[in-house]
C-alpha cells in the first residue's frame, strides 16, 4: 500500500526519489512547451531554422563586411554560426528557464511536484530548438564545402556545457523571479549586454588584447564558444585552456549553488508566487 507522511522538512528527505517519480510529468511539460511553441504560426518549426539563418546573414554583413573583422581564413558565416548557435541556445534557455516558474504559477500553486522539473523542462525545449537550428550549420558547411575536423565529435560535450551553464544561471533567475519580478526586466538586458561581451560574431583572440584575455574569459560563454569553434574549425583554431577551465568551474559552481538555493526556497514558492 502506498504510504505518505507529510511533516515539516519531510520533502527534503525523498527529494531525489520524488524527482524520479515525477519524470513523466517532466516529459509532458517539455512536450507541451514544444507543442505550444509554434502553434498558430504559419511556418511552424521552420522558425527555429529561419531565425538563426537571418541573424547569421546580418551578423556576417555587419561584422565581416562592414567592420571587416579578421576571420583567420574561415568563411565568415561559419565563424558566426559557431558563436551564434550556442549563444542563442544559452540566451533563450536562460530566458525561458527564468520565466518558467512564473509562467507555470497555476501549476505551482495548485499541484505538488518537485519544482525543479519546471526549469529543467524549459531548458530541454531550448535544446530541441538548438538541434533544429544546428542543421543550418551543416547546410552552410556543405555550401562552402568546408570539411570540419575530427574535433567535431567533441561537440556534444560543449553542447552539454552550454546546457549546464544555462540551467545553472536559469535556476538562480527562476528562483529569484518568483519573488522579485525585476528579473523579468533584468534578463533581456543581461542577454543584450552578453551578446557584445561574448565572442558571438567575432574571433575574440584576434580582437581582444592579450592582457585582457583572461578577464574576458571570465564570461562562461567564452569557453563554450571557444570549444564550438575548436570542434568545427579544427586545426586553425586552438583551444584556449584557461577559458575552458573557467567555464567548467563556473558551470559546476552555478549548478550546485543553483540547485542548493532553488531547493532552499522552493518550499515557499506556492506561498509567494
Amino acid at each position: 500500500m502506498h504510504q505518505l507522511t507529510i511533516e515539516p522538512g519531510r520533502a527534503e528527505h525523498h527529494y531525489w526519489k520524488d524527482l524520479w517519480k515525477y519524470r513523466e510529468l517532466f516529459y509532458f511539460l517539455a512536450w507541451r512547451d514544444l507543442l505550444v511553441r509554434y502553434k498558430q504560426t504559419l511556418v511552424g518549426i521552420a522558425w527555429a531554422f529561419l531565425r538563426p539563418a537571418l541573424t547569421m546573414m546580418v551578423l556576417t554583413v555587419v561584422f565581416g563586411k562592414f567592420a571587416k573583422l579578421p576571420a583567420a581564413g574561415v568563411p565568415y558565416p561559419i565563424l558566426v554560426l559557431c558563436g551564434m548557435l550556442p549563444w542563442q541556445f544559452f540566451s533563450t534557455a536562460l530566458a525561458e528557464c527564468g520565466n518558467s516558474l512564473v509562467h507555470n504559477s497555476s501549476l505551482v500553486s495548485k499541484i505538488y511536484f518537485p519544482r525543479l522539473i519546471v526549469p529543467a523542462s524549459s531548458v530541454i525545449v531550448s535544446l530541441v530548438d538548438f538541434m533544429v537550428s544546428a542543421s543550418i550549420l551543416a547546410l552552410v558547411l556543405l555550401w562552402y564545402q568546408y570539411l570540419p575536423s575530427a574535433h567535431i565529435f567533441f561537440l556534444p560535450l560543449f553542447v552539454g556545457l552550454a546546457f549546464a551553464a544555462a540551467f545553472g544561471v536559469g535556476l538562480w533567475i527562476a528562483a529569484f523571479m518568483v519573488r522579485y519580478r525585476d528579473f523579468r526586466l533584468i534578463v533581456p538586458f543581461m542577454v543584450q549586454i552578453g551578446f557584445y561581451i561574448t565572442p558571438v560574431a567575432y574571433l575574440y583572440r584576434e580582437v581582444v588584447p592579450e592582457k585582457f584575455l583572461l578577464l574576458y574569459a571570465l564570461n562562461p560563454m567564452v569557453g563554450v564558444i571557444d570549444g564550438f569553434r575548436w570542434c568545427v574549425l579544427g586545426g586553425q583554431h586552438v583551444l584556449y585552456w584557461p577559458a575552458q577551465a573557467i567555464t567548467v568551474g563556473w558551470t559546476v559552481l552555478l549548478i550546485t549553488t543553483g540547485i542548493w538555493y532553488f531547493r532552499r526556497v522552493e518550499r515557499t514558492f506556492a506561498d509567494v508566487i
Partner: peptide
C-alpha cells in the same frame, strides 16, 4: 494545500495511506 503537499506544515504530521 498541506494535504496536497503544495506547502509544508510548520508543525505536526499527516499520514496518508493510499
Amino acid at each position: 494545500k498541506i494535504l496536497s503537499r503544495i506547502t509544508e506544515p510548520t508543525k505536526g504530521r499527516i499520514q496518508l495511506e493510499g
